[in-house]
Design a protein around this nucleic acid. Structure first.
Lengths: 224, 224
DNA sequence: GCAAAAGTGTTTGGGATACACCCATGC
DNA sequence: GCATGGGTGTATCCCAAACACTTTTGC
């Protein structure tokens, strides 16, 4: 193994930061400050520095470029490492990608790069292969919902069963039977009723529920 | 984005090459030629060069260090990127890892690094975090067997149902009911009977089957 | 004929699916 | 009183699980 410098690809990290707002799954994008793709929107990402784990680099970049602290995310997971030679016109760049899920995230404006959340079903054209990375994240999330409690990270601490079902439907991309969904989900004992109710308009108030575990838990039965 | 050199982690690739022989899942290891961990066994791996995809780098390294061509593998899949700062005592090294599955692989000796296949249940102590990488690969493979036809890559083209079940049992780590396994697997239409039989000893010969698809296919029902 | 592996059916319980009406509230 | 979303039960079907004996061969 050589001690001398060798010609290595650039190592970067990109984050797919998702939240669920107004019955829509939304992803965080920023505006690129430099070439290539200057002015175009892209996933937040940047260089990895030696001594930083990729996740730590992501934390630094998210804070700098979007004003979001990694600790605000409720679930973070490495997705895939994208490495095709042509993905960056400047030269070979290998990108380790992460998916982060949160609730009510608010990007800070100011010296950041015009961060905003856009619905995943109405993405603008994005720089690099970032559209493909988002598609990969969506597929992963869709799968994870069927065998884990991962939705917890997209919902507020207290939520109604309708909100929960809306999140599933938005991510799965299809509608689910209300009675079956409720019966099945409640039987998993992942959530518990709270004494609180949610009132919003001229109709019966909804009971609020809470996840028993706020960490990722695998479940046996499937919810598809 | 800076043009000047920045202090980046080293980028490497490591491969978990698996095959199924004599009712055992086996993994390819080589002996390390240099420090650190000189003489200790490790997964085949090495540096990624700019302009090479990580998978291409793995192909080069596998050929050099173990005399195995990547094209001999019947399934290759990226696993995870390991990036903890302390995993390499020489300095921060980020490793993109792959799992490769094959049948009847024979490492070439000579100028290679003493490559051999060892049963995953009887691993020697390995360099770096390679034991953890193998554990990760095994977990991934276990999952994949329940929702894809991935076993095809570990079996010869023609195989008996008992061989198939043995592979499942070795990877799942538990025994399965023979009648249920056969009925369920056959009903998936992933395999078809061939006109051939396998004879080996003083007992009834076994029918040989073949996978209809030699590429990865997702299946709906589960085989756990 | 005997040892050794191949091959084969049925029963039962539980989860998945399909489906329509009453309830509580605000105005 | 009416519009709006919240909440609830049953019947059917199919899959998963459990389980033991007969068949074919080599010696």
């Amino acid at each position: 193994m050589p001690e001398q410098a060798y010609q290595a690809p650039i190592l970067t990290v990109d984050g797919v930061i998702l939240q669920f707002v107004q019955q829509q799954l939304q992803v965080l994008v920023i505006q690129r400050a430099n070439e290539p793709f200057q002015g175009m929107e892209a996933l937040p990402g940047g260089y990895i520095v030696a001594g930083e784990t990729t996740q730590f680099s992501l934390a630094r970049i998210l804070d700098q470029k979007a004003g979001i602290a990694l600790s605000e995310l409720r679930l973070i997971e490495q997705l895939y490492t994208f490495d095709t030679v042509a993905r960056d016109p400047r030269g070979h760049a290998v990108s380790v990608t992460y998916m982060g899920l949160g609730t009510a995230l608010t990007p800070r404006h100011g010296d950041t790069q015009a961060p905003r959340f856009v619905p995943v079903d109405a993405l603008p054209e994005l720089a690099f292969d970032h559209s493909a990375i988002i598609a990969y994240a969506r597929a992963r999330l869709r799968n994870k919902l069927t065998y884990t409690n991962a939705v917890f990270a997209l919902l507020p601490e207290c939520f109604t069963l309708t909100q929960l079902q809306d999140a599933y439907e938005a991510i799965m991309g299809r509608s689910l039977d209300k009675r079956n969904f409720r019966r099945t989900f409640l039987s998993l004992n992942l959530i518990e009723a709270t004494p609180f109710q949610h009132r919003d308009g001229a109709h019966r108030p909804a009971r609020l529920y809470r996840f028993v575990d706020q960490t990722l838990v695998d479940i046996a039965r499937n919810l598809d």
